[in-house]
Every structure is written in C-alpha cells, then in structure tokens.
Design a protein around this nucleic acid. Sequence first.
DNA 1: TGTTATGATGTTAGCGCTAACATAATGTTA
DNA 2: TAACATTATGTTAGCGCTAACATCATAACA
Lengths: 341, 341
Amino acid sequence: MRKRKGAGRPTISDVAEKAGVSTITVSRALRDPSKVSDHLRRKIDNAVKKLNYVPHSHASALASTRSNIIGVIVPSLTNNVFADTLRAIYDAFDQGVYQVQLGNSRYVAKEEERLVRTFLGQGPSAMIIAGTDQTEITRELLESAPCPVVQIMEIGDDPIDMMVGFSHFEGGRAAGIHLVQKGYKRIGFLGARMDPRSHRRMEGFKEAMRSGGRYDPDLIMTTTTSSSVTLGAELIGQLRARRPDLDAVFCNNDDLALGALFGCQKAGISVPDDMGIIGFNDLEMMAASYPSLTSIRTDRYAIGKHAVAMIQSALDSEMPDQKIIDVGFELQQRESTSRKR
Amino acid sequence: MRKRKGAGRPTISDVAEKAGVSTITVSRALRDPSKVSDHLRRKIDNAVKKLNYVPHSHASALASTRSNIIGVIVPSLTNNVFADTLRAIYDAFDQGVYQVQLGNSRYVAKEEERLVRTFLGQGPSAMIIAGTDQTEITRELLESAPCPVVQIMEIGDDPIDMMVGFSHFEGGRAAGIHLVQKGYKRIGFLGARMDPRSHRRMEGFKEAMRSGGRYDPDLIMTTTTSSSVTLGAELIGQLRARRPDLDAVFCNNDDLALGALFGCQKAGISVPDDMGIIGFNDLEMMAASYPSLTSIRTDRYAIGKHAVAMIQSALDSEMPDQKIIDVGFELQQRESTSRKR
DNA sequence: TGTTATGATGTTAGCGCTAACATAATGTTA
DNA sequence: TAACATTATGTTAGCGCTAACATCATAACA
C-alpha cells in the first residue's frame, strides 16, 4: 500500500474522529460556529484543544480557492514613512482572517515586478502596492488580477483599481510657497534617492519658485544616494560651497532636513535667521529638535487604514465610496522657518 | 456532474497538455530543470510563458508538506532597530524559494502567542522570533515545532533552538562604565517602553554604577510610554527638575538620547561639559548630530544575516557551527561624552 | 394530518500539486 | 551479449481541506 507522510500534525479528521462527527462539521464549527449546534460545537472545541489542532492554511486555501492573503509591496523597510503605513495595515488586519504578505522592492522596478508575480501566485485576496510608477508588465499583471488592488502613498489620474495618498507635487509646491512667503530669496532644494515621488515633490517646488520669481536651477542639489541625516549635512555643505548666498532649503524628507540643521549648526549658521529649513513628512523628531523644524505633515497611518477599508468594502462587494482618496497634507510651521523679517 | 470553480488561472495540467507531456514532468522542469531533457524543458518553458502560468503555492505546499514560509515575529514595525534586522532577513531570502511571513506582536506577549499559533498553522520552514521572553505556552509551541527556530536580538542561556544577538546587560554596563570613566558623577538613566531588553540594559547600567560607587536609584527615570525624541527631551527635563545636579545620562535608546540633547540645548545646558549623553544602538543620525552623540553600536543587519544563515544550514541538515551567536556591540565614543576634565 | 420550509449534519469529489512507485530507454560492465 | 545500473518520463494516489449536493430531523403551516 502506498503511503505518504503528511505533516505529522493533527488534521481535521483527527478532530472529527475524536469529537464523533464528520470532518465537514468540524470545518463549519471552526469557520462559522453558528452553523453548528451548541452540543457538537462544545465537543469539537474540546477535541481541538486536546489535540492542539491548528488548521492547515494551505489545504484550506486550496480547497476554497481563497487564500486570505493580502500582498503588500513597499520599496523600503527602514524608511519610517512606509513603516507607519505598514503598521496601520498590520493593525487593521490584525484580528481578521487575513494574513499580510510583505515584499520589499528596494526601489527597483524589476524587483517589484518579480514580487507581484510571486504574490499573485498565492492567489491573494487583495494587493497593496506603493506608488504609481509600476512597469508596463506589472501594471498589466495587476490590472488582470482577480482581486482588489490599492496603490498607496500617492494619487494620480489613472489608478490600476483604487488609490489612497496625496499629491507630492502639491506638497512640494506648498513647501516652496511657504519659503517664498517667509521672505527667503535664494531658496535651494536638497534631494536624496530621487525616486518618482521625490521627483514630483521637486517639480512642485520648482513650480512654486517659478511663480514666485525665485527659480534658479543652480540651487537644486540632488543625489541618487539613499537619504540619511549625515547626507543632509553634506548636501547643504556642498550647496553652500557652490552658492554661499543660499538662505533657505526645502529638503526632500525629514532626515535631510535634520542633517541640514546639524550642518548649519556646525558651520555656525543661524537657523532660521540665516537659513530657513523645511522638511517633508513631519516625523516625530521634527517638533522636538532645537530649533524645531518646519515640515509638511503627512498622515501615513491614515493611508494604511484607508487602504484596508477600501479593500474590505471591495471584498464585501460593496462599491467603495470612492476609487481615489486624497488624505492631503498640512504645513506644520515651526522655528526653522520663523525668522523675524 | 459535480463541478467546482477552481481559481480560474492556468494549472500545471494546462501547461502539461500544451507541452504534450505529463504534469509531473512540468513539475520537475519547474523545480529542478536538470531532471528534464533540454528538448522537453524548452517545450514546457514555452507553454509556461504562453499561458502566463504561475504555480499555485498552496497546492504545492499541501502536496509536498513543505510551505517554504519563514515566520518572523517582531514587537515593532516602526522601531529602526527591528527594521534593520528585517531588511537583512528579506535581503537574505530574496532570491530563494522562501517567503517571509511577518508578524507584529506590538510588545504584547499574548499577541505573540497568537501569531506563533497562526504561523505554525502554515507549517513554516523556520521561525524567527525577537527576544527571549516568550510566554510558557509560546515556548512550548516553538519547542515542539518541527522546524528550526531562531531567537534574535539578544542572547541567553536557554535557547528554544538557536539564538543570535548580544547581551543587553553588558551593553548597558559598558555605557555606565564609560560615563564613570569620563569622570561624570551623578549619572542618570532614561528609559522608555521598558520592555525586557530595556530592563536588562538598565540592570547592566546599575551594575556599572554600583561597582563605580555611583549608584543612586533616585537618578533612574523610566516610563512605559513608547520611546520618542520628544519623550527624551521631556524625561531629561523631569530628571533635572528632580536632581538639578545631574551631570550625565545613559539613554535606553538613541531617540531618547537625541531628545535629551535637544532638551539640554533648549535649557542652555552645555553638552558634554555640563551634561554627558550616551545612547544605545548607534542609529545613523548619532554621528551626524551637533554635537555628535556617543552610543553603543549594535549590528542589527548582521543579526538578521546570521539568523538566516543558521536557518539555512539547519534546513540543509548540517549541524550549525554554533547554536548561539554573540554579535557583540561596540562603544562609539563621540562629542557628547568627550568633555575636558 | 400531511405538506412544506428550515436547520443540522453527512457524503462525495475535487482544489492543484508532488511523493512514491512503475516503466521504458539508454549506457556500462564483464 | 547478458546482466545490471542509470536516466528520463509516466501513472496513481494522496496532501488536508471545503464546495456542492444529499439526507434526515424538526418546526411551521394549512
């Protein structure tokens, strides 16, 4: 007689036998207790406990053709911005039946494509993916995926399915306008990584400079190096070396802004009087620094929460209230741009 | 005739039919191409491409009783310390067949227990779990799990299976000794969250104070609130209010240390002359700040890499070189504790 | 009272894949 | 050339669960 090993763990049949019922009754008792009489339910619960039975999720997924997996793809695990959104997603799916499956694309489009393929192989219940700059193939894969798809962190005209985020262009523009209004004259831009969202912030900034009559491409300093506080100090040093008359900077993100502050302090430049600094995202530290740092506040946690809510209403086959949610942003003015004119 | 839907995606049979071979040959061609002749392999590859076939991972897991899932449980998704280790784990498993399944226990033991149960339900190939303070039940579950288990971030005498990390007690002690050696007299401790690892750092610190003749419980200030830069500024303010003669602090972690620095700057206290500050973990920003901040450097990325290497040698059924790996730590002295005596 | 709706439980087949064995084709050795 | 090993491919039966249908008991109703 041919035999196979199995996983060596108790199966639903073991439970059924112990409880004196059929396997399907056990299955029902575990998935929807109201479908089974109290009498049998108690017996089954006991058997489950005694055997320390845990359902085999793969068998369940195969039989029901529902995996209960939510695929999430982000470009970075160490960036606080994504960490906050991820936390929201994990919090929201916490109690339910869904399992979050996380992938790190490391800002590489081909990597993202590979992850999408892998995740779709698990027949996910939904997909969450950061950004709007997928490759053609990735887009096609996701468009034909038989599950809800939410693009997060930013918004645009042409969602694959649903979207939640905010306009990075407008965020960058708001930062630029703020510096112009504060009376700064030679306003620079410091950018690290320069992923698509950073680019759009920069474009928004440029737009603000142009309409404020302050546009000067020589004041823009970017690098593809990944962002860090140290880099912020270096970049402002380089930009000041090139343009000693620089009197304000919009930093791509808060790490750079904090680094720029430290760089100024080291060089004996007074913030905000001789140098205005504004960051992006408003991480917690921005309010605590000395001087405190102005930033564009974004609600990353809300993005995650909305994404899950959209998925849940899509899975309940309700029409979502909207296909695109703009969570906006808010300029948080602090000491680093509050000079006396 | 009874019929079921299926997932609607192409299956291995579709590929087999199109390529004119049996399903098992397709299975082999995909898992180990060397087992199939070039001739058939080409045919199969073509069919796969034409049908856009992606294997159903659940079916594979069920049939082979191997899930290729690596369960990872950490207490926080936003703490940079875990983010670095997670990144290492994701990087290491990147190209292989394994899928990382991440859980966030939020520093709640019961939550951790629930996650362990869920993950074991997927028949993981291995488990990685942060810390050594699992509940009794969690420990039992993991001990009887039919897969390698690695506890990460810290080390101890009694591993469930394997361990990689460092001694938080010794790290805390090293920080304390450093401040004593630098000639600081009234040395405080600022602690947030106060999870078990924080506790052990504090105990190491106390030990250093005792042996240096500087122990004063009145100088210890802790809270269960989660750590933040803002909190660091607050805590040092409170401790100074209680003990105006305070002249140095060891901070539980780098966020608090940075906050303590800002707090001192705001209050006009000179760092390091009137106040020495040392943090823990040596995040990137510590070297960039002004003044730069002393910290205990820990190699979180290495912890993740080692954990994966241990798992891989266990799965290849080689005996691992060692069951417990101590990656150590290194005191990184900077300006914040470099006063002229 | 018989008829029908409702609810609880069981039987059977199959989700898509691979382990285990079987078989055919080829190479190797004395 | 027979005897055996090796390689390439196929057949069959399950992995553990649940969808779909079937059955039986009880409640509801005319």
